[in-house]
């Protein structure tokens, strides 16, 4: 049963702790689940369990391309690999291996890329992927998820284990604003309407869901009714929901912690262009590399705040007929 319990408060759980509990739990439930990491087990709290269960967890060292290949080889033998490393190393660093050894060869693996976009904070530009979604979207048959909160993370990770194809889950390791109840069941590929509104539709994913809900409150105070839709599944996109909301409101804003090129904005525009071309705008990273800093600074620096969503919502409304 999925309840929306959003108040704007942070969920007390760190997502790294959620990963550190959920991966061992999935392994305990299914003997085919196997976990691989590239020397970052300690970053998601799986290290102790991995040491105690060497037959269920493989530390592949700092060699991500090989790790993906090993995971794919295990998949061909019937295992269900869950692979983790930081987002840039889970995408750019090993993309050809994901594409060919995984997608093309039909070796089904789940890849978790932590610290997407500005959530990489103090690790800075080398560790800050604004393009991981764009890359994974091009893998035929892939599933691409930008996690909303801890409940969403648990729900999608459980589904990904048995889902065919390459699955990519991007999630920050820290706290998220709580959006869903603990028992949330969030079917992959299904958009969730978090707030109704007739004037403009805000499609958001990941950390931007919270910003979108804050923006909707501000807009309401100014007499603008904004719908907020969580598109945590970027691929396969819930095209029906996107087209319906776009038609109902006639104006769209997309908010993502990612480059404006190739991510959720592009995915939504592909649907709008073919179904219901309405004025649209985005709150996303411009054609830029990342940099170091605290998350609030980076969100301001790259234009990823509720304030930016409010501005863009007004801009698209002005373009409405």
């Amino acid at each position: 049963m999925t309840e929306i319990v959003y108040t704007g408060e942070l969920d007390p759980r760190l997502c790294k702790s959620v990963l550190g509990e959920t991966i061992p739990a999935l392994a305990a439930e299914d003997p085919d689940v196997i976990y691989l990491d590239a020397d970052l087990m300690s970053c998601i709290g799986t290290g102790k369990w991995a040491k105690e269960h060497p037959e269920r967890a493989v530390n592949c060292g700092i060699a991500e391309a090989n790790m993906i290949g090993v995971a794919c080889g295990l998949a061909s033998a019937g295992f269900k690999p869950i692979v983790h490393t930081f987002g840039p190393f889970a995408s750019r660093r090993c993309f050809d291996q994901v594409f060919l050894s995984g997608g093309y060869a039909k070796n089904d693996i789940t890849v978790i890329g932590t610290d997407p976009g500005v959530t990489a904070t103090m690790n800075g530009g080398t560790h800050m992927p604004f393009e991981d979604v764009a890359l994974y979207r091009t893998v035929p048959g892939a599933t691409v998820i930008d996690v909303t909160d801890p409940a969403c993370l648990i729900s999608v990770l459980r589904q990904c284990v048995d889902r065919p194809g390459v699955k990519y889950i991007r999630v920050g390791r820290k706290q998220y604003a709580r959006v869903y109840s603990d028992s949330a069941d969030l079917p992959i590929g299904k958009a969730v309407t978090l707030r109704e509104g007739k004037d403009v539709a805000i499609f958001a994913a990941g950390i931007m869901v919270h910003e979108a809900l804050q923006a909707a409150k501000t807009l309401e105070a100014q007499g603008i009714q904004a719908a907020v839709v969580d598109l945590f599944t970027i691929k396969p996109l819930d095209a029906e929901a996107v087209a319906r909301r776009a038609k109902e409101t006639g104006a769209v804003v997309v908010a993502e912690n990612h480059s404006r090129h190739g991510g959720l904005y592009s995915a939504v525009l592909e649907v709008l262009a073919e179904n219901c071309p309405v004025p649209a705008a985005c709150v996303a990273v411009e054609d830029e590399f990342g940099e170091v800093g605290p998350q609030d600074y980076l969100q301001e620096r790259f234009g990823l705040t509720a304030g930016h969503i409010v501005s863009q919502a007004k801009a698209v409304l002005a373009r409405k007929d």
Partner: peptide
Amino acid sequence: VDMTTGSLGQGTSLACGMALGDKLR
């Protein structure tokens, strides 16, 4: 054919995963 190959180098890691899988089983 036990594994898809063609992009040079990739078969090496895949083979390691297959051998590891056999060992674990």
